[in-house]
Design a protein around this nucleic acid. Structure first.
Ligand SMILES: Nc1ccn([C@H]2C[C@H](O)[C@@H](COP(=O)(O)OP(=O)(O)OP(=O)(O)O)O2)c(=O)n1
Ligand SMILES: [Mn+2]
Length: 397
DNA sequence: CGGGGCTGAT
DNA sequence: ATCAGCC
């Protein structure tokens, strides 16, 4: 039946997708570690910025990615916890994904605190055998129409599963989150943001146009980043409505037919992309930023620190990397962030056969070789960031 | 006072 | 190797 419509190029609205977005993630992890922080305005500090903050701090006007100075002006009593080391956040992130995988194997991670879950099969199984309750949580658009549940049984069942997922995250991990339930990933993610924090929202199929209309500009559509948005503005396109109204040939001329079609679908709330289960990470990296690094000696010390931390994570992972990449950021008057350079090389397998000390020493040698391909150490230089990345992770060395 | 870390396409 | 996207 469904297949018949798909054959005609119709949109598939039969899936049930849940999007889970943890509330103020890093801040929540720190409040779990130290519950005395719960009733205080809390900011997580990475160097000079508040990367995120709890909702007490948000009441005072503090926002994500705000400078420390501005945040302290707005909220002098703001408590700051350092968050440059992501270890605890990464660990909680994977516990969250594992908890969600108990509901369905189709779990896709996005960053550390978001997960998409395709619960279509779970919904089908439940509707066959069990009696399902009312639609759980908020509904978008807000409206009270008789028989909403009857006409949207699958969505209602999805909302029940989402509630169970949120309960599991809370009782097992102490984590609160938001959930969005809809028939594709884009809409599930967007509708999840309608009621924050610690709430869930289900999207009725009839509310798609209205939901897309809540976006201020096309930039707010996931998948349309800053560069693409600037190119759109060049064409006189700014709002979602502008994009919907834009002639296909105009978009194709600027972006090519494939990208143009994806954008035209996204701005109408159409997103056929599947939930692709996320496996173990493909890369393991560690970086540090600083005011100034101007000597090879200094760089070697910083790279040694990064390698030591990386080796611990590698032991926990169990796999071995076959590619090593070093990235640097040079201070330059213009273009403060696109001035990263990287070099990579193969890692000889035998390097992981000996003790950790030896391995780190050999890896450092490789790092120095890569480093010197980017930085002429015989001339003055000024770096502001070093990143070391392990890639091509495979089962054995 | 602009982090730290990941994925996929080109 | 870089760009562009996401958190
Ligand atoms: N540019 C960014 C965006 C996010 N994060 C980190 C910090 C956040 O804690 C976490 C999750 O990002 P969210 O955008 O979901 O923000 P929060 O979870 O902190 O807040 P919210 O309650 O609004 O979801 O990722 C980051 O380091 N850099
Ligand atoms: Mn979040």
């Amino acid at each position: 039946m469904i297949l018949f419509f798909l054959l005609l190029g119709e949109e598939d609205t039969s899936r049930v997708i849940v999007h889970i977005d943890v509330d103020c993630f890093y801040a929540q992890v720190e409040m779990i570690r130290d519950p005395s922080l719960r009733d205080k305005p809390l900011g997580i500090q990475q160097k000079y910025i508040v990367v995120t903050c709890n909702y007490v701090a948000r009441k005072h006007g503090v926002t994500k990615l705000m400078g420390i100075k501005q945040a302290k002006e707005l909220c002098p009593e703001l408590v700051l916890v350092k968050g440059e080391d992501l270890t605890h956040y990464r660990e909680m992130s994977y516990r969250i994904t594992v908890t969600l995988q108990k509901f369905s194997p189709l779990v896709e991670r996005l960053g550390f605190d978001e997960n998409f879950v395709d619960v279509t099969e779970t919904v089908d199984a439940r509707l066959k055998s069990t009696f399902s309750p009312q639609l759980n949580g908020h509904i978008f658009p807000e409206m009270e129409i008789e028989g909403t549940y009857e006409r949207h049984k699958r969505l209602a069942c999805g909302s029940q599963i989402a509630a169970e997922m949120r309960q599991a995250l809370h009782s097992d991990l102490g984590i609160t989150c938001c959930a969005g339930i809809a028939h594709n990933k884009l809409l599930a993610k967007l509708v999840a943001g309608q009621h924050k924090p610690n709430q869930q929202t289900s999207l009725l199929p009839g509310g798609v146009g209205k939901l897309m209309g809540t976006l201020k500009t096309a930039r707010n559509i996931p998948g349309i980043g800053s560069r693409t948005f600037k190119r759109l503005q060049t064409l006189g396109i700014s709002t979602v409505q502008d994009l919907q109204d834009a002639p296909a040939d105009v978009l194709q001329a600027e972006f090519g037919s494939q990208t143009a079609q994806v954008m035209q679908q996204l701005c109408r709330g159409v997103d056929p992309s599947p939930v692709t289960p996320t496996g173990p990470p493909q890369t393991i990296s560690d970086e540090d930023s600083f005011k100034k690094c101007a000597s090879l000696q200094d760089a070697k010390e910083r790279m040694t620190g990064l390698l030591q931390s990386l080796m611990k994570r590698l032991k926990g992972d169990g796999r071995f990397p076959h590619v090593l990449r070093v990235t640097v950021r040079k201070l330059s008057a213009s273009n403060k962030w696109t001035n990263r350079e990287s070099r990579q090389c193969a890692i000889p397998s035998h390097l992981f056969g000996t003790g950790a000390e030896e391995t780190i020493s050999k890896l450092l040698d490789l790092c120095v070789v890569l480093f010197c391909k980017m930085v002429d150490v015989n001339h003055p230089f000024h770096l502001t960031l070093i990143n070391i990345c392990f890639a091509k992770l495979e089962a054995r060395s």
